[in-house]
Amino acid sequence: MIIDAHQHFWRIGRGDYSWMNDSVAPIRRDILPPDLLPLARQANVVGTIAVQAAPTLEETEFLLALADETSLVRGVVGWVDLTGDVPAQLARLAHPALRGVRPMLQDIDETDWVLREDVVTGLGEVARAGLRLDALITPRHLGAIDRLARHLPDLPIIVDHCAKPTFDGTDPGEDWRAGMRTLGMHPQITCKLSGLANEFGPGWSPDSLEPVFDHVLECFGAGRLMWGSDWPVLELAGDYEGWLETAQSLAGALSPSERAQLFAGTAAEVYALDI
């Protein structure tokens, strides 16, 4: 049994995917649950977390509607304006599938934006609502997330894509290593083993990604590490079956219980899924 802790859907005509330019032409098409279902079945994926791909409430409502249509989507990570009236927005989005929110931090120039007083107040409301923060970050944000975790210890934080390390050969860099080691000291922070094929680029392989896997495993353990496909963004660098096989190869030395955590248990626990 596998849970895909990170994947996306979109309908282009909705019109709020500002990032979807010619650089992502191969995935610039409507992508909906029927497109993922055969891949999920082949991979023994019993459920997914659908994650926002546009910074609008309408995007979140779109994903929640898809959760009503298919049992494949077990949870949704949406978007809210953290500088606005967060309780009112969460009331508008009230739905049993809503599991968390994701500001698109990687696209915000201000590295410490997430530490602004109004944003921290908004995230406090997210925590009080029993929701989580998915942190779409790069290495420049690691210090800010450390400080946020210290300020809001009751806010569960999930680091997307291992914080998108920048590879020099196969080395993700000492700054990334140190930052992830610090985040791993916070019990409320977990990490997604996802997005690494795209970050490495052409020529990625189990060997090239092993240094990142070994380090996040050391920092978080299998109990705070979860596999995600990042599909269909994954299609820019690989395919669903190949990335899953790579992750399984990387996890080959783990015990059966540790592998069960990495590929299903952690996601089920962190996102409170009924699996």
Rank of each mutant, 00 (worst) to 15 (best):
A54C: 10
E258Q: 15
L155P: 05
D214K: 14
S229W: 12
S229A: 11
T121A: 13
D134P: 00
E69M: 11
A197H: 01
A94R: 15
W113S: 01
R99W: 03
A251E: 06
A43F: 10
A144F: 07
W176N: 12
P33T: 11
T111K: 13
K164A: 06
R224L: 05
K192F: 03
E110Y: 03
L72H: 12
W19F: 05
T138H: 12
L183W: 03
P33D: 11
L93Q: 08
H141E: 09
D239T: 15
E218D: 14
V119R: 03
W113L: 02
D160Y: 00
L90T: 04
A260G: 11
I3R: 03
Q42I: 00
L123K: 07
I108M: 12
A91Y: 10
L63H: 08
Q89E: 14
V120T: 12
L115V: 05
R177K: 15
V159M: 12
P202L: 09
A50H: 06
Q261R: 14
L148D: 03
L57G: 05
A54I: 02
Y17F: 13
A163W: 06
P38W: 02
L273C: 08
V126G: 07
R132M: 04
H151F: 00
T121E: 11
Y271V: 06
W227I: 10
R92G: 01
F213V: 05
E210M: 13
A253H: 14
V126Q: 05
G169R: 13
D154L: 08
H141F: 10
L262P: 01
V24D: 01
I189Y: 01
F263R: 04
T83Q: 15
S208F: 01
Q52Y: 02
V119C: 11
P139T: 10
A97G: 02
D239C: 11
Y240V: 00
W10I: 02
S249E: 14
V120C: 06
S257Y: 09
L63C: 09
V119G: 01
V46C: 04
S257W: 08
S18T: 04
Q188R: 11
G124S: 13
V159D: 03
P55R: 07
W19G: 03
E218W: 12
E58D: 15
